[in-house]
Nucleic acid binder design. Structure first.
Lengths: 228, 228
DNA sequence: GTCTATATGTTGATAGAC
DNA sequence: GTCTATCAACATATAGAC
């Protein structure tokens, strides 16, 4: 009895330690990979940032690529959720505004993951499996179909759904991925919550209503709800 | 006389060789840096791709960073030009459409340079000098002032000029920088001219007129020229 | 200008004591 | 589970013969 209990306690502790250390390694790794890419990141750096000796990193992950692949996996999983806002049963104006807000929020809270994926895309997507690519394509198609449905109902201008989605993707991720230069452009040291809010307002306003002023300019961002 | 002439010929040849080799090195380097970043790129790779022995690369460039810095320099120089389209003496509709077209074209023709800069931004802009950052900020401010002028004249919707510029920047660069995943999203192996043209149309249409359909939907992308 | 050989340090990964 | 010591391979950069 006593022996068995000890074994369980020990197992729990070991599991706990494993969970904690893996988490620390992954946290350090995503930050480094996101800034320097796969080839540019050294295991020694990951070890240093996570506060573990290099050999311990190898104890939890067989290879450098195993860490990287794990991070890509968890990122793609998190992405499906953001696109759920674009659903056929909502009004396009509301759905698109919600999507932009959610995506900006996500990219702000998961900056490193977002950058990691950007880095992976720049590198040509070498570490994304064929299966994962098919998945990305499938969920994009689903949402493009929703947009096409809105267009057919006359609720949305007749734009190419795929390119429209890419536009939304591009604008909402830019702030997180390229924060360093965005901050310089805005004349700031660092982006804060107010900057993201201003970005959200501008993106929603332009995407929904366009930049060209109507004949009788309105004062707020809801103008076209009123004048149309 | 004969001796002097020989010396001149030799110097010309040497200059020519130098120019040619430096060009090959820079061409190979921009491609590699753009895909793998600074730390991820090896001098041996640059040498291999440019068809020169590694030691020759060091003959023309003292350090790896010297190559990288040179590339950043030439990229920033090429950028100023694209922004010139946004000038106060043009109508916003025409100027913005021209800018989007020019920027897309530029990013398509200089894909590697564009990606290199994206990579540099992901890395936090470590290799961009303070002076270069100030330059970026200065030219952005100029163009933001032009946009502000359009808004004051009632020609443009009252959006934040800086964020509006960032939107244009994001949408026009996405295709070049993230071509690998964009192609997957569009269900293609590779992006071609028609894809870029469709992207241009979509971006211009959405940025100028917005995505929400007007009461009486028009059939072409010039719709708001007619109904407004 | 070209290129072989090499100095000097760093890398991903492992062996094995604790 | 932890960590020192270490390996073979590879990195940036240089010396010096041609």
């Amino acid at each position: 009895m006593a022996k068995a209990k000890t074994a369980i306690v020990k197992a729990n502790t070991e599991e706990h330690i494993r969970a904690r250390n893996e988490k620390m390694i992954l946290k350090a790794a995503v930050e480094l990979f996101s800034r320097k890419g796969f080839d540019g990141t050294r295991i020694a750096e990951i070890a240093q940032v996570s506060g573990l000796p290099k050999a311990n990193v190898y104890y939890y992950f067989a290879t450098k690529q195993a860490i990287y692949t794990r991070l890509i996996e968890s990122l793609l999983a998190g992405w499906d959720k953001a696109l759920e806002h674009i659903s056929a049963d909502r009004e396009p104006r509301e759905a698109l505004a919600a999507y932009v807000a959610a995506k900006l929020e996500y990219s702000r809270k998961h900056t490193s993951e977002s950058r990691l994926f950007a880095n992976e895309m720049l590198g040509g997507g070498q570490f994304i499996s064929r299966q994962q690519k098919q998945h990305v394509r499938a969920i994009t198609r689903e949402r493009a179909a929703v947009i096409q449905g809105w267009i057919k109902k006359g609720k949305l201008a007749p734009v190419d759904p795929n390119h429209f989605l890419i536009m939304l993707w591009a604008t909402t991720q830019f702030y997180a991925d390229f924060a360093s230069v965005t901050a310089v452009t805005l004349g700031k040291g660092r982006l804060n919550g107010a900057d993201f809010e201003e970005a959200r307002k501008t993106i929603v306003e332009v995407v929904l209503n366009g930049a060209i002023a109507p004949m009788e300019p309105a004062k707020n961002s809801q103008r076209s709800l009123k004048i149309r």
